[in-house]
């Protein structure tokens, strides 16, 4: 088989060709694909313990059921993504049960504790919206066939999570009083978390293999804009304040603070008067948030013990 060059691959992709098998990839394509799939897999996986933590505070059997359904979907999506990684030669068991907490590539938002029903709702409305925006992109554009097809189911289910979040957010805000204040407090820390999620602004970004190989189609700023254009009107319709507004001149949503800024994870507070560089923001992500280890442990806790039992060593 003749060696495939990156240029030839890019031309094929530009002509609308879908890649189906590892043999059709260059090493570089494969590396970029693994990277983006791993982020998706880890994000879905680590949303489960975060949502579970909040589900334990569910205010009725019905609401607990909805939360569990969402958790099951997220685990299912993670499973799909890990299976795709397996097809690319990765070891699924190791990826789920063998890595150290800091090696997981989920966003900073899923390193944070979700401590109440209200925080689960706002997470559904904001973080699942980020998920839909981020996955809707490859669903529409990606050059990797198996991923594109798998995303059809993911997209439908995430739409349900979002509706769950949005309907409940409206309902909680209509209740007013202390409940609405609680929503406002959750929005105050979760909104900037969502805005930061989309990463480096386009003017600072040098080069992206993910875009050149058409693993995805939109730039970070375009994706952030899609997110803002859904989330800001939702909050406005609920009467909840967010540090962003629509700028009629630019015809787009703009943030009212210089992104990124410093965050105090203990107090769940953004320090809007303390702007930082993106490098510093990435440093903060890498240091990981307060619940990174806890959540990873919630997934990995039993695996070693169980394998020990099966293999005849360790405590019974």
């Amino acid at each position: 088989m003749p060696t495939l060059t990156d240029e030839a691959l890019k031309q094929k992709i530009a002509a609308g060709y879908l890649i189906e098998r590892p043999e059709e990839m260059t090493e570089r394509y494969k590396k970029a694909l693994i990277q983006i799939l791993l982020v998706q897999a880890d994000t879905e996986l680590m949303s489960a313990p975060a949502y579970y933590m909040a589900a334990c505070k569910a205010p009725s059997i019905n609401t607990r059921l909805s939360a569990y359904a969402i958790i099951q979907d997220e685990l299912g999506h993670a499973h799909i993504a890990f299976r795709l990684l397996e097809d690319l030669g990765m070891d699924k068991e190791y990826l789920v049960y063998g890595r150290k907490p800091h090696e997981f590539k989920n966003p900073y938002g899923f390193d944070q504790p979700l401590e109440s029903w209200v925080e689960l709702i706002v997470a559904n409305a904001f973080f699942d919206r980020a998920g839909i925006v981020l996955l809707g992109d490859p669903f529409k554009h990606t050059s990797y066939g198996p991923w594109k097809r798998a995303l059809a189911k993911v997209d439908k289910e995430e739409t349900f999570h979002l509706r769950h979040g949005e309907v409940w957010m409206k309902r909680l805000c209509q209740a007013g009083g202390k409940i609405k204040e609680e929503v406002q407090r959750a929005v105050d820390w979760m909104f900037p978390m969502g805005a930061e999620w989309f990463g480096l602004p386009d003017h600072m970004k040098r080069h992206s293999d993910q875009l050149e190989y058409r693993l995805k189609g939109y730039t970070n700023d375009q994706l952030r804009q899609q997110w803002l254009s859904a989330v800001v009107p939702l909050c406005e319709s609920c009467g909840v304040r967010v540090p962003a507004h629509f700028d009629p001149e630019k015809q787009q949503y703009v943030l009212d603070y210089p992104i990124p800024v410093e965050y105090d994870p203990e107090k769940k507070r953004w320090l809007f008067d303390k702007p930082i560089s993106w490098d510093q923001a990435f440093e903060r992500w890498k240091r990981r948030g307060p619940y990174n280890e806890h959540y990873v442990k919630m997934i990995q806790r039993e695996y070693q013990k169980f394998m020990g039992l099966l293999n005849g060593y360790g405590q019974a």
Binding site: Y68, H79, F82
Partner: peptide, 28 residues
């Protein structure tokens, strides 16, 4: 059942949370 996000396989975690819903559904 719902406490088993930490089942020794991802498939089993999914089954556990799915069966948890069934039990809640029956309780309801």
């Amino acid at each position: 059942y719902g406490e088993w996000l930490s089942a020794p396989a991802l498939e089993a975690s999914i089954a556990a949370v799915s069966m948890a819903q069934d039990e809640f559904g029956h309780a309801r």
